[in-house]
Amino acid sequence: MTRTHSEAFKLKMVKLYLEGGASFNRISREFNVDRSLVRRWVTRYRHHGLKGLEPATKHHYSPSFKLHVVKCVTRDGLTDRQAEARFNLRSTGLIGKWLVQYHSGQLTKPLSETKRAAPMAKKSVDLPPADAPERSLSQDELIEELLYLRAENAYLKKLDALIQKEKAAARSKKRKRSKG
Rank of each mutant, 00 (worst) to 15 (best):
C72A: 13
R171M: 08
S124V: 13
K97I: 06
L50F: 04
S28M: 02
F24S: 02
R46C: 07
P133C: 01
E113T: 06
G49M: 02
S64I: 12
A85V: 02
L107M: 00
S104H: 04
S91K: 04
A56E: 09
E7I: 15
N25R: 14
G77S: 03
R175M: 11
G180C: 05
P119E: 12
F24D: 02
S172L: 12
L159R: 12
W98G: 03
E113R: 12
K167E: 15
E19L: 07
Q139D: 14
D76S: 07
N88T: 01
R3A: 12
E141K: 04
L137W: 08
A117W: 05
L78I: 01
G49Q: 00
L67F: 03
S6I: 00
V125M: 12
L78F: 10
I163A: 10
S28Y: 05
K115H: 15
E84Y: 00
L111W: 08
R26G: 05
F31E: 08
A132D: 02
V70S: 01
D140I: 07
G49C: 01
P133A: 08
L159D: 08
L50K: 09
L50T: 09
R171T: 06
S6E: 04
Q106N: 10
P119L: 06
E84H: 01
T57P: 00
E152Y: 08
G180T: 09
Y148F: 15
W41C: 01
H5A: 00
T74Y: 13
K174D: 15
R46G: 03
V125C: 13
I163C: 08
Y148L: 03
E7A: 11
S62G: 06
V73R: 02
P119S: 08
A118Q: 11
Y61H: 14
H5K: 05
R81L: 11
V69L: 04
E141Y: 00
I143W: 05
N88R: 05
Y102R: 02
R171G: 01
V125S: 07
K165Y: 10
K71G: 00
K12C: 03
R29S: 11
K167C: 06
A83W: 04
H59V: 10
I143P: 01
